[in-house]
Computed example of a mutant assay.
Amino acid sequence: MASAAQHRLRDWLLSLYQYLLPQHTLSRLMYRLTRHRIAWLTGLQIRLFARIFGVNLEEAESSSPKDYPNFNAFFTRALGEGTRPIAGPADAVVSPVDGRISQLGPLTGNRLIQAKGWSYSLVDLLGGSETRAAPFQDGQFATLYLSPKDYHRIHMPLSGCLREMVYLPGRLFSVSPKTVNGIPNLFARNERVVSIFETEAGPLAMVLVGAIFVGSIETVWAGQITPPYRHQPCHWLYEGEKALPLEKGQEMGRFNMGSTVILILPPGVIHWQSSLQPESRILMGQTLGQLTTTVQVDAERQRASA
Rank of each mutant, 00 (worst) to 15 (best):
V180Y: 06
L112F: 13
L208F: 11
P69W: 08
E200R: 15
E198I: 00
P22Q: 07
F53I: 01
A39R: 15
M165H: 02
R171V: 00
G105E: 10
W40S: 14
P267G: 04
G202M: 09
R301L: 13
P22T: 08
I46F: 04
Y19S: 04
G43F: 03
H235G: 00
M252L: 15
T179W: 09
E81H: 09
T25F: 13
D98Y: 02
T76Y: 02
G202Y: 13
G215Q: 05
G215F: 11
P157H: 07
H235F: 08
G88P: 04
K116E: 15
C161A: 05
L112V: 11
L79K: 01
K149A: 11
A201Q: 09
I101M: 03
L144K: 06
Q137H: 14
G127C: 11
L126M: 12
K242Y: 00
P96M: 12
F75A: 07
G80M: 09
G139H: 01
T226V: 15
E198Y: 00
Q18E: 15
L246Q: 13
I113Q: 12
E200L: 14
P267T: 05
F187M: 09
Y31Q: 11
R84S: 06
G88K: 14
I217Y: 03
H24K: 15
S147K: 07
R281S: 12
T131L: 11
L79N: 01
S305E: 14
Y120T: 08
E239R: 11
N185K: 03
L16H: 03
P267M: 10
L168W: 01
S3A: 12
P177W: 10
D98L: 03
G99P: 02
G117P: 09
L21V: 10
P233Y: 12
Q140C: 12
L144V: 06
P85F: 11
L288Y: 10
D150C: 01
R84N: 06
L168V: 15
N56I: 00
V209K: 03
L44Q: 06
Y120S: 04
D91Y: 02
F53N: 11
E58A: 14
W12Q: 05
Y19T: 00
L237Q: 13
M206R: 06
Q224H: 01
Y19N: 10
D67F: 01
G139A: 04
